[in-house]
């Protein structure tokens, strides 16, 4: 009935869900690009998917800028502004990591050796699962629904699994007789992909704290 009084707030709410849509699209294109890269190494489709990932990552950045402008033109009360901004800034580090992983592959001409395919696939699959859960946790936080703690537990467990795979892969890499320069390049890629689940875990814990803070 009084929705017209809260136009800016309604717009911010809409933009947050638009941001989550872009976030999903970034992850989707990243996953498809890596699948292409693993099965066929270099191909035109990879470039297209990388461009799409970049496009949606930029769109996500634009949405965050718009949310920022709206909130600091006095939409929402300061507490909510701070909470939403902190959450989005942390969350937005994930699309950046995703894009960086693709750039490493593309611009350093990196080919994932067959011996590491299974590990990299698991790392990506678990990281993406964490990101999906994280997106769900953001929705739960915005809608003030229960269950954020359970989601945080799963993301935390995923982060441990990713750390384990990351360490194993790097150890296997440096035990191999591959070119030392390649080893350093590949290690960087593994670390960047591993960072995705680490960041998801950080954001998840932040959301849990914000949820607790908002209780009275």
């Amino acid at each position: 009935m009084f929705q017209f009084l809260f136009n800016k707030e309604n717009r911010v709410e809409k933009l947050i869900f638009q941001y989550l849509d872009s976030f999903h699209l970034v992850l989707d294109h990243f996953s498809r690009a890596l699948a292409t890269c693993i099965t066929r190494h270099q191909c035109e489709e990879f470039d297209f998917l990388m461009d799409q990932t970049h496009k949606y990552e930029s769109k996500a950045d634009d949405i965050i800028d718009e949310i920022n402008n709206l909130m600091f033109s006095k939409a929402l009360i300061p507490d909510s502004r701070g909470d939403i901004m902190n959450m989005l800034i942390s969350l937005d580090k994930i699309p950046h990591l995703v894009e960086r992983a693709l750039f490493i592959i593309r611009y350093q001409g990196l080919i994932i050796p067959d011996v590491f395919t299974a590990d990299i696939e698991s790392l990506i699959q678990i990281s993406l699962e964490s990101c999906e859960l994280l997106s769900k946790q953001v929705e739960l936080f915005i809608k003030n629904k229960g269950g954020t703690r359970t989601v945080m537990g799963t993301i935390d467990a995923n982060e441990s699994r990713c750390d384990h795979i990351e360490r194993r892969t790097i150890s296997k890499l440096f035990d191999s007789d591959m070119d030392p320069f390649f080893k350093l390049q590949f290690k960087e890629l593994v670390l960047v992909i591993g960072d995705i689940s680490d960041q998801a875990d950080r954001v998840s814990k932040l959301i849990n704290i914000l949820t607790l803070k908002r209780r009275v």
Partner: peptide, 13 residues
């Protein structure tokens, strides 16, 4: 306030 799950934006309003 704690009993009803009011969304962040509705709480704000």
């Amino acid at each position: 306030y704690n009993k009803f799950s009011i969304s962040l934006f509705d709480t704000d309003r």
